[in-house]
């Protein structure tokens, strides 16, 4: 039996860019395709609107609803991975974007699981977020994303 968990994941990173630039990097596909393993975000980012994350081959990776959008300080979405059958339970991802002073922004990503998920999936997310958000920081600070290989899903997940 797979071990189930409802643990949250929190990741904090400081970025030498204004809060509205960090918001733009999270919500515009011109940015996300460069640091989010090639994935494009699509949404009008209004509360209650749908949003999705599209893979480079056109398939939908993740989709959900915009739960809260307080540009440029807070964005909360529901998050369901679309390509795993049966569909995993929905989780909530929240980005908090705070001015830390001196041209630095503190970005906090929180991934919460109202329904428990297999621990292997949680660990997969915990591997991915530092790669994604380190890439976002590099892109905003240097104009160039990191060249990191896209991680493979855990063995337990059959696409």
């Amino acid at each position: 039996m797979s071990d189930l968990t409802g643990e949250s994941t929190v990741y904090v990173i400081y970025i030498a860019a204004a809060p509205h630039k960090v918001w733009e990097a999270l919500t515009a596909s011109e940015f996300t395709t460069r640091y989010f393993f090639g994935r494009a975000v699509e949404s009008d980012w209004k509360e209650g609107s749908p949003w999705l994350l599209r893979m480079p081959d056109g398939r939908i990776d993740v989709q959900g609803t915009v739960r809260e959008a307080k540009r440029p300080h807070k964005l909360a979405v529901s998050w369901t991975v679309d390509w795993i059958e049966p569909k995993p339970p929905e989780c909530f991802v929240t980005y908090e974007i705070e001015d830390a002073g001196g041209g630095v922004t503190r970005l906090t990503m929180t991934e919460e699981h109202p329904a428990p998920i297999p621990r292997a999936w949680l660990e997969g997310g915990r591997k991915g977020w530092p790669m994604i958000l380190s890439g976002l920081k590099s892109l905003l600070e240097t104009g160039k994303p990191l060249g990191l290989p896209t991680p493979m899903p855990p063995k337990e997940i059959k696409p």
Binding site: Y14, A16, A100, G102, V104, S138, E141
Partner: peptide, 10 residues
């Protein structure tokens, strides 16, 4: 390491 400038503000 990436830009030559640390984050003095924090």
């Amino acid at each position: 390491l990436e830009t030559g400038a640390p984050m003095d503000a924090i």
